[in-house]
Amino acid sequence: MQLTAATAARPAGRRVRLSRAGRYRLLYAALAAPGVLLLAVVFVYPLLDLMRLSFENGSLAHYEEVVSGGLFGTVFWNTVRIALIVTIACAVLGYPVAHFLATASRGWALFGLLCVVLPFWTSLLVRTYAWMILLGNNGIINKLLVGAGLVERPLPLLHNEFGVLVGMVHVLLPYFVFPVYAVMLRVDRTLMAAAEGLGAPLWQVLRRIYLPLTLPGIAAGGTLVFILSLGFFITPALLGGGKVMMIALLIEQQVGQMLNWGMAAAMCMTLVAAILLAYAAFKRLGRRNAP
């Protein structure tokens, strides 16, 4: 009698048991729901709507206009060129700094980190404004140069591409340094010591061991800097003085001045496509060269 009861109870018990594992799965999925819902409504939907807008009336008219107009093409390639220069500059400036942060004594590393983190946390507008004070014709740098008699007339540092590059590199440098620094912290120092012990000169150790080992960080930092550069708005707007055109500025113009939402949408989509492409390309590069 007892046995029958136990046997009868088992299938029922089993059903409940299966749902206990399922309940946890459901619970964890449910935790994501509010965030996903928010993103679905105010992120995914607007982007899909923007895509629809760019293909207004189911035509490619806006894209044809974007391509044939000539202006967009010029600005697009100009943006890509600036983004590349900024990325390379960040790598050249940032790689040794990351190495310094990863290897210096505690005190110096802290000082260095502070130098990188403090600007990172400072308002972008504050920094841009400071560069205007520094780089202007009556700015600090030109005054010092003229005052020292090194140049006769102030150098054109602001309201041109140079000013934009300086401002962008300043903003984006930490984005390159952090990922490289994180990778360098994990690099096994004994490897380099071993290579040197085997008689490899410093340059060879750097090229053959350190660089390949830290490449994932370089790829990550480079991707981030390049992608962020493509969408830059504030720095070119203020430091370019209207003479340096980048895509984000062009899009703002289409909306703010021309009220041409369709064109703006098409430009936005092209920019997104460029970013996705750059992301995929860097990812492949990073994977192929990973040690």
Binding site: A6, A9, R10, G13, R14, V16, R17, R20, A21
Partner: peptide, 19 residues
Amino acid sequence: EEIDDGRIELAGQDITDMP
């Protein structure tokens, strides 16, 4: 861990499905 089959009793009470 949940068992797929079988039964666990504690002091005469079936705890197989108890959290």
